[in-house]
Amino acid sequence: MGEVVKFGPRKRKPTAQSSLCREGHHKWKVEKNSQFDVKQGRLVTVYRCERCGKRKTTAQ
């Protein structure tokens, strides 16, 4: 008879990015340290995703 191999539960590898963020569902939070764009001369709101760190900007 052959050797019996035990299979245990799989261990998940930690992912660098949340699965929600990969699908485009970010958790945006306003970054308050940079609010003014010198080149355009107007207020700019900078958002950063809490999970993955991606940034997006909107100008008012």
Rank of each mutant, 00 (worst) to 15 (best):
M1C: 09
G2L: 07
G2K: 06
G2Y: 03
E3I: 07
V4P: 00
K6V: 15
K6D: 14
K6R: 12
K6L: 13
K6W: 10
K6F: 08
F7D: 11
G8D: 12
G8P: 01
P9K: 15
P9G: 13
R10V: 08
R10A: 15
K11N: 13
K11H: 12
R12G: 11
R12S: 12
K13D: 10
K13T: 14
T15K: 05
T15P: 00
T15N: 03
A16H: 03
A16V: 09
A16Y: 03
Q17G: 02
Q17D: 06
Q17A: 08
Q17T: 15
Q17V: 15
S18L: 03
S19R: 12
S19G: 01
S19A: 11
L20S: 15
L20I: 05
C21F: 02
C21H: 03
C21R: 07
R22G: 11
R22F: 07
H25P: 00
H25E: 13
H25N: 13
H25W: 12
H25Q: 12
H25L: 11
K27N: 15
W28K: 09
K29I: 07
K29Y: 10
K29V: 11
V30E: 09
E31I: 01
E31L: 03
E31A: 10
E31G: 07
E31S: 11
E31C: 10
K32V: 06
N33F: 02
N33A: 12
N33R: 05
S34E: 12
S34D: 13
Q35R: 08
Q35V: 04
Q35P: 00
F36H: 10
D37P: 00
D37S: 08
D37A: 07
D37R: 06
D37M: 02
D37H: 11
D37N: 14
V38G: 02
V38P: 02
K39Y: 05
K39V: 05
Q40T: 15
Q40Y: 05
Q40M: 01
Q40V: 11
G41E: 10
G41I: 01
G41Y: 00
L43N: 14
L43C: 07
L43K: 13
L43G: 15
V44Y: 01
V44S: 04
V44P: 00
V44W: 00
T45V: 11
T45W: 00
V46I: 08
V46M: 04
Y47E: 14
Y47Q: 14
R48D: 03
R48E: 14
C49P: 00
R51Q: 15
C52L: 05
C52D: 10
C52E: 08
G53A: 04
G53V: 08
K54M: 08
R55Q: 13
R55G: 01
T57I: 06
T57F: 07
T58E: 10
A59R: 01
A59F: 00
Q60G: 09
Q60W: 01
Q60V: 01
Q60C: 01
